[in-house]
Amino acid sequence: MRDLGAGLGHLIKGQRWVVRHGRWFGLGLLPGLITLVLYAGALVGLGYGADDLADWATPFADDWSSPWLGLLRNTLTVLVFAFGLFLAVITFTAVTLLVGQPFYESLSEEVDRAEGGKAPESGLPLWRELWISARDSVRILVRVALYAVLLFALGFVPVAGQTVVPLLGFCVTGYFLAEELTAVALQRRGMALKERLALLRGRRLLILGFGVPLGLAFLVPFVAVFLMPGAVAGATLLARDLLGEESVGTVPPPRP
């Protein structure tokens, strides 16, 4: 359970870091604002169209009597919007990181320098880094989509669908949010997606302690934009913890 608190601690420390370094915080808002405008439009459209989608998907229920018809379609409408919101929370980070790739990588490097005195560099050109980030994000989103479909189906299970399934959804969201964010620091260290996933699986509670509170916060409008710079900073601290890298203040002095 200690890892849960440690993960939350990295998230808080990351937010404090960007507040103390106001220039990085200010510049980090722009990619998030651009992505937020795009996603807000998509969610508004989904909100207006969810009813029609539920009607289209359940033609077999047209002759059902009240209240079963309304119960089925209202439940499906809620699940469709929840599914869209779930995907929005997951993909928001990936899209924002792609939009702000050069900045967020520089921010992560600055945190590394502050903590460890040096910042690992991938040595790859920007176009190559963008390609790797986009490719890995698609692979992660495929995994997320599989979980989302499973959770969507389980949402129809009485009681568990309204209690356990949302909890699992938040855990899945938080886990993959943490993966996307730590990828900024871990890719600079030459770690491929398979290696990163194996590293995260080794300390699941640490990852959930970081990602679940962040995922919950991202559900609040505009909060994701303001937390994004600090989330990248905190994820760099999280990556250093996963790799066992010591901070400057904890490194013992060299022997004379």
Rank of each mutant, 00 (worst) to 15 (best):
E105G: 13
S106N: 12
K118Q: 14
I12Q: 06
I90W: 13
P253K: 09
Q187S: 14
L69F: 03
H10I: 02
G174W: 01
L38G: 08
L97W: 09
G249L: 14
P252W: 05
G244V: 10
G41A: 06
L168K: 00
R196W: 01
A153I: 15
F226A: 15
V220E: 04
G174H: 02
L87W: 11
L197A: 01
M1A: 10
G70K: 12
V95C: 09
A192E: 04
M228I: 08
T250Y: 09
L38Q: 08
G244H: 06
R204A: 02
P120K: 02
D63G: 04
R189H: 00
V184E: 03
A54L: 01
G100C: 07
W68C: 00
V37S: 10
G234I: 08
L146T: 11
P120T: 06
R143K: 15
E245Q: 13
L11Q: 05
D55Y: 11
A57Y: 03
G7Q: 03
N74T: 14
R188W: 02
E115M: 12
A183T: 02
L85E: 10
A6H: 04
L43A: 00
L4M: 00
L33Y: 01
R255K: 06
S66L: 11
Q162I: 14
F176E: 11
V89A: 04
G100E: 08
R73M: 08
A153H: 04
A183I: 00
Q15P: 05
W64H: 00
V212L: 09
R139I: 06
V44T: 10
R113P: 03
V18S: 04
L87R: 06
D241T: 15
V164D: 07
P253E: 12
L216W: 07
A6Y: 00
F176T: 04
M228N: 10
A233C: 12
